[in-house]
């Protein structure tokens, strides 16, 4: 086993690098756009501070549509959009586009759920102090929901890794693509097992770190 792994060492490192690139970009998209979308979903929801049926319905449907797409089809469906954004539909960077779209929708829903856990009284206290909307969000909601937001990001990251494994279809590469091409299609079972072990360790580490940080952040 060691021999064949040594033989592909540079390919493995390269594949891990691609996975990190795709997942990293998706995490950035999740935080930069998924967090605001999730917050807007929460604020415009029924009985909330900025209840707005139309806005809520539009975003709710968008998030659901993205999440209900079989992911491979989403990748194919988004090819024109990807080409428009990064100039090409192939490669690691191009693969990050559909992954990021999924990431935004996925994390937005988890953000909404975490914010719904914040007791109503906290928003009421914020309003009674004369908090602006931004202050309400940043100083009250995100502070009270921070461990849930962290756990949501952990769950999301692990899903992004899983989604990223099919990116071979648009030449995105990554560890999953490596496992399929070298391990499965070339019948090198050892290689496949080895990459699965890498994935396992990666996912375990992320979950452990995420859970630990959520615990540290939670003072409730």
């Amino acid at each position: 086993m060691v021999d064949s792994i040594m033989q592909y060492q540079s390919e493995i490192w390269h594949a891990i690098g691609e996975t990190f690139t795709m997942v990293g970009i998706s995490i950035i998209a999740a935080i930069a756009l998924g967090l605001p979308v999730g917050t807007l979903l929460y604020l415009s929801g029924k009985g909330q501070l900025f209840e707005n049926r139309v806005l809520f319905a539009v975003m709710n449907i968008l998030v659901n549509v993205v999440r209900s797409f079989p992911f491979l089809l989403l990748v194919v469906f988004l090819i024109p959009f990807t080409r428009f954004v990064v100039g090409t539909a192939l490669g690691t960077l191009a693969a990050s586009v559909p992954l990021s779209i999924m990431a935004i929708a996925y994390y937005a829903r988890l953000v909404e759920q975490s914010l719904l856990e914040v007791p109503k009284g906290v928003t009421e206290a914020a309003s009674s102090m004369g908090a602006s909307t931004l202050q309400l969000i940043v100083k009250f909601l995100y502070v009270e929901a921070r461990s849930g937001l962290m756990l949501g990001l952990t769950t999301s990251t692990i899903s992004f890794i899983s989604y990223s494994t099919v990116m071979g279809i648009v030449g995105g590469g990554g560890i999953g693509d490596f496992a399929i091409r070298y391990g499965y299609q070339r019948f090198e079972t050892e290689i496949m097992i080895f990459t699965i072990i890498i994935m396992l360790i990666l996912v375990q580490t992320i979950q452990y770190t995420g859970s630990f940080m959520a615990r540290v952040l939670d003072k409730r």
């Binding site: 007791p119 009284g121 906290v122 009421e124 206290a125 502070v143 009270e144 952040l217 939670d218 409730r220």
Partner: peptide, 12 residues
């Protein structure tokens, strides 16, 4: 304003 359930920010 004060409340029955205090409504403190528990993470601060």
């Amino acid at each position: 304003m004060i409340f029955q359930s205090f409504n403190l920010v528990n993470n601060r």
